[in-house]
């Protein structure tokens, strides 16, 4: 019953890194770094209605050591900044980062004494998502953009920063 049956006696060829990238792209393990309201919207994205599982990224890990996609969803305070940096550093390569929402991308409307003005001041970011909070469709689009980036063999921001 396996896929082999479909090929009969024939075979397909590919390049190793393409096969690996294909596997990576359909099995991203997200690590949610949820610090504010955007995290609630992220839950909606993973929930059954929008169902991130359709893109192979449903296994949300709460350990950075088991994840390759960091989704920063929420306001990051200066007090939290070292924590975010450490979590990012603990993730194994290759790794990708989505900055979800106005706060994570730019500090949002919190131009104050406590808030980091965008997580790209601390860690490299691959895809920014606009919105306050972004709709689940926007988060899924960001995930698809990450998949495209993996497909295109572009290096993750982690390796070019």
């Amino acid at each position: 019953m396996g896929i082999e049956n479909a090929f009969g006696d024939s075979f397909i060829s590919t390049r190793l890194n393409e096969a690996i990238n294909w596997a990576r792209k359909w099995s991203l393990y997200p690590m949610p770094f949820g610090t504010a309201c955007c995290a609630i919207e992220f839950m909606a994205t993973v929930g059954s209605h929008y169902d991130m599982a359709r893109f192979g990224a449903e296994v949300v890990r709460f350990s950075p050591r088991q994840s390759d996609l960091l989704i920063v969803a929420g306001t990051v305070s200066e007090k939290m900044a070292p924590v975010l940096k450490r979590i990012y550093d603990q993730m194994c390569e290759p790794k990708w980062v989505i900055s979800m929402g106005a706060c994570a991308s730019s500090g949002g409307f919190y131009d104050n004494y406590a808030t980091v003005q965008g997580i790209d001041r601390i860690i490299p970011v691959d895809v920014y998502v606009a919105g306050c909070p972004p709709r689940p469709e926007a988060v899924l689009t960001a995930l698809i953009k990450i998949q495209e980036k993996i497909d295109s063999k572009q290096a993750p921001a982690a390796q070019t920063a």
Binding site: E78, K79, P82, Y113, Q117
Partner: peptide, 14 residues
Amino acid sequence: YAINERQPLIPENL
């Protein structure tokens, strides 16, 4: 106290 006077704990790329 200036409203946006931040005191980062780790270096930031500006």
